[in-house]
Amino acid sequence: MTELPVSTKKKLGLVIDLDICVGCHACVTSCKGWNTENYGVPLSDMDAYGSDPSGTFLNRVHSFEVQPEKGAAQIVHFPKSCLHCEDAPCVTVCPTGASYKREDDGIVLVNENACIGCGLCAWACPYGARELDQAAGVMKKCTLCVDRIYNENLPEVDRLPACVRTCPAGARHFGDLGDPESAVSQLVEARGGFELMPELGTKPVNRYLPPRLKDKPAAQPLTSLIEEEQATGFAGWLDRLLEKF
C-alpha cells in the first residue's frame, strides 16, 4: 500500500562524506553492475554504442564548484542516490501500490510487477532518485541493496550496499540512522551531517558530511615555470626596436 508507515523500526541509509569523495564513479559502476544482475529487471542502456548513449542509473556522481566569498573555489564531487525519505512523496503518489516504504527498515522499494510506468513518482521526487527504465517501462530506484544487506549467502563483509562496499576512498557509510548510538549517527553528529533540500519537507534519511574548507590560497601567485628568454646583442637591439612599432 502506498500509505507511509507511521514510523519505521530502523532508518537504514547512507552517509556520504563529501570531504573524502574523489569523484571516481566506482560506486556508480558497482551499483549498475549489482543491480543489473540481481533484484528486478536489468538497468538498461539505450543506444549504448551509438551517437546518443543513455541509460538507467540508480546512483550518479555530480561535480560542483563552490565559490566562497573570499579565496579560491573548490570542487566537490557529489554522489546522489535515493535518500529513503521518511516522508517520501514518491510513495504516496503511486496509483498502483507498487511503491512502498518498509516498516521494518525504512527502505523505499518498487514492486516492479505492479508498476505501470506512469512516471509520477519520478516527478514527485526532488532529488532525481527514480528513473524509468526505457526497456522495461518500470521505475527503477536504489534498493539500498536489499538483496545484499540481508543475504546470508554472502560473506558477512559483503553484506553492505554495493556502492559502500566498493568505494575505494571510504567516502560512503551504511547503517541505521534511526539509532543515535550507531556509527553512522555518531559520524553525522560529529561532522555536522546535513540533509538535501530540507525546505521541501521530505525528511530524507541519508546524510551528507560537509567538505573541509580549502586552505588559504598562496600569498604569491605561482611564478611561471619557464623564464622568458631575453635576446642580447644585435638581436636584443632589434627586439627592442621592433617592439616600438
Partner: peptide
Amino acid sequence: TATGLGKIGKVRMFEPPHTGSNYLMREM
C-alpha cells in the same frame, strides 16, 4: 539548498554526472 553546500559559497555545475542525456533530464 539542493547540494547543502551553500554554507561554503555559491554553487555552480562543474561536471555533469555523464556526457549524454538521461531520463530525468528529458522528462524534467
